[in-house]
């Protein structure tokens, strides 16, 4: 016999499917929703429904958006000829936080991962190549993660884009600001030395 009433068990089971949510947290969240105002519970349910109903991928850059093209691709103030390639839509927020990048984005929705059977054909590369072929881009910045998978993706993309004579750059890798060289691992230090610049 279930510990809770059937609708409660169902809500706990659904919440448990979310990343980072275990049984206890799911129970706590479910009881919080139960105790909250009807309006708050309704607003939460509506927000969940809307996110699935109204969001889609931008036809230009594959970012998650409610309007197509997305706010970046349709912006008149952004440099549409400078494209930053990222693995996931969540990476855009990190770059936007700098307030220094005024170009647009291209989201791959993953990276090359041979162990998971993900090759270049599984990534959303086609519309990036088209943008480049149509002469709409001056520079592509590859901002994939500094991991084996991210590097393989960047190297593959660079090979594809350079065929069209495109200027392709890779984000720098190295020591985080505010950290100490003494505690930097060998690979990060190596990348920092390789990516040094003249002052």
């Amino acid at each position: 016999m279930s510990k809770f009433a059937e609708p409660m068990t169902r809500l706990i089971d659904e919440l448990k499917k979310l990343p980072g949510i275990g049984s206890k947290t799911a129970q706590r969240l479910a009881f919080h929703i139960l105790r909250s105002d009807d309006d708050d519970a309704e607003a939460l349910a509506a927000a969940v429904r809307d996110v699935k109903a109204s969001l889609r991928l931008c036809s230009v850059c594959n970012n998650i958006t409610d309007v197509d093209p997305c706010v970046y691709c349709s912006s008149a103030t952004r440099n549409q000829r400078l494209v930053c390639v990222v693995e996931e839509p969540t990476n855009i927020a990190s770059i936007e936080k700098t307030k220094h990048f005024n170009g647009v984005y291209h989201v791959l929705h993953g990276s090359i991962s041979p162990l998971h059977g993900i090759g270049p054909e599984q990534l959303r590369i086609g519309n990036l190549i088209k943008r480049v072929e149509h002469g709409q881009v001056d520079e592509v910045i590859l901002a994939t993660n500094p991991t084996v998978e991210g590097e393989a993706t960047a190297t593959y993309l660079s090979g594809q884009l350079r065929r069209n004579g495109m200027k392709v750059t890779r984000i720098a890798m190295g020591i985080p600001v505010g950290s100490d060289i003494e505690y930097t691992d060998e690979i990060t230090m190596l990348k920092a030395m390789e990516g040094r610049r003249e002052l």
Partner: peptide, 24 residues
């Protein structure tokens, strides 16, 4: 402690698949 890293030289798609194969 890192003794040798695949990231110390270029990781092409070809090399990434080969490395993953050895691991698997």
């Amino acid at each position: 402690e890192v003794l040798d890293s695949p990231l110390s030289s270029e990781v092409s798609y070809l090399r990434a698949v080969a490395l993953a194969h050895v691991g698997e």
